[in-house]
Design a protein around this nucleic acid. Structure first.
Lengths: 145, 145
DNA sequence: AACAATTTGATAATCATTATCATATATTCA
DNA sequence: TGAATATATGATAATGATTATCAAATTGTT
């Protein structure tokens, strides 16, 4: 089993992009959280501090190189997370009260049903499906009590 | 069968908000398109022209009053659409090539499977589910040829 | 070591969005 | 109907998040 950083480095190298200390720190920050992070959250979590200009540049570079993906949350903020080829296919649980987002994986059987369902719905519209993503809204355990 | 505008007006009135000519024009613009629109697209589509300051204010008012909902597309733009209590429950098809978004409804049986699947996945995480939304990515008929 | 390429961080510029406010329009009620 | 009151409009300024710039630093290469 190859480690996350090795995978990222290999992918970046093949695209002529260096895997620097700053970029490694971003990946580590995202690796250690249950859901996507904003630029500001990355800024607060990394140690030592990385200037905003560098974080903005790096999340963009990492998104352009398919290492990260961008998500938008209901509070209108932009959040980044590891691309699925690094973190595994997953969906999102969004708390409608506190807006927290957490990753969730479906059981294989459920994932299979979801894929077939998406395929047949899209086929009706003439689309060739390349992926899907389910967002489940609800009250998280904290906000529900 | 009550018309769309009557529903919107009633809802807004009950919240002390007026259903003006500008706001009606926004609703009409959104009613006549297959997917969500950006502020700029609304600006171009409405006749006579409504200034940006008014469109921005109105989409915000209409979103705050639950008449519209905000969506984010992969090209990082914000798009507005009629809330589901006005347009009906639906999901989105996103073309990964041209970024167009169109609404899609699932067959009742498929929608039922999706709901159950979302419920049981979320239950495992202690969430109480209030809704769900599926985004299907693929190539639209135009981009696929 | 010398050279070339890329990255960094400070700062300035840009762009989408929101706030301000005087004027206009609609609603209420005496 | 006609004040009086409340809300909406549109021009403009202000804000905030993101991107661009560029000299200095770092990394990779001959």
């Amino acid at each position: 089993m190859v480690g996350l950083h090795a995978k990222v480095e290999k992918s970046l190298r093949s695209q002529g992009v260096r895997y620097t200390t700053n970029r490694r720190a971003l990946i580590e920050a995202l690796e250690n959280t249950p859901g996507p992070l904003t630029v500001e959250e990355i800024y607060r979590v990394t140690e030592p501090r990385i200037p905003y200009s560098s974080i903005y540049r790096d999340v963009r570079v990492l998104t352009d190189t398919q290492v990260l993906t961008l998500h938008h949350s209901a509070d209108r903020s932009n959040r980044f997370e590891l691309a699925e080829w690094l973190s595994g296919h997953h969906h999102h649980l969004v708390c409608v009260a506190c807006m927290a987002i957490s990753d969730i994986s479906l059981a294989p059987a459920a994932e299979g049903r979801l894929s077939r369902l998406a395929d047949s719905a899209a086929a009706g519209a003439g689309y060739r499906v390349t992926g899907h993503s389910l967002e489940i809204e609800g009250l998280c355990p904290d906000c529900d009590s």
